[in-house]
């Protein structure tokens, strides 16, 4: 549905201020075997932008 200013309801909702969420501390156990696969054999580059597979390096 269009509002008077020409915005759809969805667009107006998107513009609503995000609600404050209290920061929360979480503990992360550092386990390199769970790392995202390294993207490149010769570096620690990591993450889905990489294109490497079974070889690779430590991910991050």
């Amino acid at each position: 549905m269009l509002k008077a200013n020409g915005e759809t309801e969805q667009e107006a909702l998107k513009k609503e201020k995000r609600r404050y969420m209290k920061p929360e501390l979480k503990r992360v156990q550092l386990r390199p075997e769970e790392a995202v696969l390294g993207g490149c054999k010769i570096s620690s580059n990591a993450g889905p932008t990489g294109t490497c597979v079974t070889c690779s390096t430590s991910g991050s």
């Binding site: 929360e24 979480k26 503990r27 992360v28 156990q29 550092l30 386990r31 390199p32 769970e34 790392a35 995202v36 990591a46 993450g47 889905p48 991910g59 991050s60």
Partner: peptide, 13 residues
């Protein structure tokens, strides 16, 4: 709360 590293890493990336 403790989160596992894989979950943390994927979310960060």
């Amino acid at each position: 709360e403790t989160v596992n590293y894989g979950e943390f890493s994927r979310e960060m990336h």
